Amino acid sequence: MKEMPVTTPHQGSSWQKKAKFQKLMFILMAITPAFGGYVLFTLYPNILSIYYSVLDWNGIGQKTYVGLLNFKNMFQDYYVWRALWHNILFMITIPPLVIFISLILAYVLTNKSYKGSSILKVVFFFPNVLSTVAVSLLWAFIYDGTFGLLNAGLRLIGLDVGNFYWLGEKSTALWATIPPSVWGLVGFYFVIFLNAMATIPKSLYEAATLEGANHMNKLFSITIPLITPIIRVAALFLMLGVFKGFENILILTNGGPSGSTDVIGLYMFNIAFGSGSHNYGYASAIGMFLFVIMVGAKLVIDKFTANKSSEY
C-alpha cells in the first residue's frame, strides 16, 4: 500500500499564512477602487473645504487667511437665513408628500387586481427615469404664463387667470417649486414600497378581511407597521436629499424672483461659481454650516424615529 504524505506542523503553518495573505490581497484589491473613489471624490474635497473656509480666495488669485471671519459674516448674512428657511420648508413638506403618495400607490397596486397594473407601474416610475433637468424644464413649460398647461387647464374649468406666471411671482414661486420635486421623486420610492409590500404574507390580509377590516385598517394595522424600517430609511434619504439639493430650483427660478425661492445650496453655488466676484472661502464656510446642519438633522431623525422592526 502506498503511504500518504505526512504534513509537518511547519508546512501546515506556512500554508495557512499563504492562504491568509491571498485572502488579504483579494480584500484589498476588492475595496481599493471604491475606497479610492471615496477618498478622491468625497473625503479629499471635504477636507479642502475646511481649509478653504478660513481663507479669502476667489479660486485663482492669492489666498488670504482670515480665520473665522467667513463664519462670522455668514451668521450675520440675512440671505443665508432666508435660504435656510426655504430649505426647512421644503424638508417638512416634500418628504411627507412623497412618502404618502408612494405608499398609497404601492398599496393600491399590491392589493387590487388591475388588468393594466404592469403598465401603471411603468407610468408611475417614468418620472424617475427623467433627469432633474428634464423634469424641471417640463414643469417650467407647465407653469408658463402664455403657453403653460396649468393656465390652460384652469381656463377649461372656468378659472381664467390670464397670463399669470407662477414662477415669476413672489406669492406663488416658492410653492410652485414643490410639485416638480414631488413628481420626480414619487416613482423611485413607489418601487421601493411596492417591493417591501410584496414580502408581506397574503394570509395576514386574508385574516384581516375575515375579521371585517377595510383597506384603511389593513394599511395602518398591517402594511405600515411591517414596512416601518423601509419608511424610516426613505424619510431619512428624502429629508437629507431635499435639504442639500438645489438643481431643480436652479433651472426653474435660479432663486428668483428677488430671492424668494433661494435655498442654501444654490446660494452657496452662486457665491462660488455665479456671475460677478467669486468667493470660494465664504462658499466653503456655508458648506461647512450645511454639513453640520445635515449631521444634526440625521441625529434628530434617528432619535425620534426609533429603528423598530415588526415580525410576522
Rank of each mutant, 00 (worst) to 15 (best):
M216F: 15
F71P: 01
M29S: 15
V263T: 05
G12Q: 11
L204G: 01
P180F: 12
T132D: 10
E311N: 11
A176M: 10
L266H: 11
I157R: 09
I264R: 02
K121C: 06
A234V: 07
F141Q: 08
E3N: 15
A19D: 02
A306R: 14
I104W: 12
M74F: 14
L204F: 11
L55N: 11
T199S: 15
I50L: 14
F126D: 00
L266S: 05
G148N: 10
R155E: 10
L240A: 10
M1E: 12
T209G: 08
L43S: 03
F246Y: 14
K2F: 15
D144I: 00
L69E: 13
L219I: 07
S260C: 12
S258W: 08
E247W: 13
L238H: 08
Y280D: 01
Y38E: 00
I286A: 07
Y79N: 08
F291V: 01
Y38M: 11
T93A: 12
A140G: 14
V300E: 06
S275Y: 13
Y107E: 08
A235N: 13
A173G: 06
H10D: 04
V186Q: 06
T64L: 09
L103E: 03
L250V: 02
L219A: 10
S131H: 06
N195K: 08
I230N: 12
N270S: 11
V80T: 08
Y282H: 07
L130D: 01
K115Y: 14
L69P: 00
F193L: 10
S284C: 11
Y79K: 07
I31E: 02
L194P: 00
K72D: 04
V108G: 08
L252K: 06
L226G: 06
A208D: 04
L167A: 00
S181F: 04
L167D: 05
K17R: 15
D302E: 14
F35Y: 13
S113T: 15
I249M: 07
L24I: 14
G168K: 01
L138I: 13
E206A: 09
V186K: 05
H10W: 09
A207Q: 08
V122Y: 06
V66H: 05
L156I: 10
I47S: 03
N46I: 02
G255T: 10
L69D: 13
W183S: 01
S118A: 15
N46E: 07
N70F: 10
W175V: 11
L154F: 14
A30Q: 02
N254H: 12
I231K: 05
V54F: 15
F289I: 00
